[in-house]
Amino acid sequence: MNKKTQEAKILKGCRAGKARYQQMLYELYYGKMFSVCLRYSRSREEAKDVLHEGYMKVFSGIGNYKGDGSLEGWIRRIMVNTAINHYHKNKKLKDTFSIEDEYDEVAEHGHLTEEDVIQQMAYDDLLNVIRTLPPAYQTVFSLYAIEGYNHREIAEMLHISEGTSKSNLAKARKKLQKQVQELLSQKAHFQNV
């Protein structure tokens, strides 16, 4: 209840364009939204650009938010859309850099479960891993696996066909699988030393 009234207060202030409430809203969702933006970008600076562009949209369109659905979800959607726009804008530039896959043999990890992996991995590791993918794979994977969009929506957002989306996802998974195992083997190595 307290949270809701606070949110309503912030919304009211933001609609009036008051700096204090805007800052409150900004701080409230900064962490989550920044981590969303990081997933769709190649660097921290780029992510910050996306974040700020997204927040500009949030503040300019706060009047359109009618209160149905959670505020966080609404903002998150805006952020994702902004990131996709950003992706389209930079597509040409990004496509010039292709990443050759040169992975070494991965050590054996037969006994690990997913929970173990989740515990071991930090968000920075995740970002590092995910950024080794080509931008298209990165975006498709983030949209599908983390944000939970389906292939049709992704295809529409990225102006690609559903088949492309599916194949991108499969390839991204394959690469990430390798990368994660490599990462874990490295970690295990360090821990042993």
Partner: peptide, 29 residues
């Protein structure tokens, strides 16, 4: 080498995470 459910791993790690707040950014925005 065992196959992990990559989606699940990434989703949970991402859900747990929140970036630290940097007040400098607010000034920029």
């Amino acid at each position: 080498s065992r196959e992990f459910n990559i989606d699940k791993i990434f989703r949970e790690v991402a859900d747990k995470h929140e970036e630290a707040y940097d007040p400098q950014d607010w000034n920029v925005l």
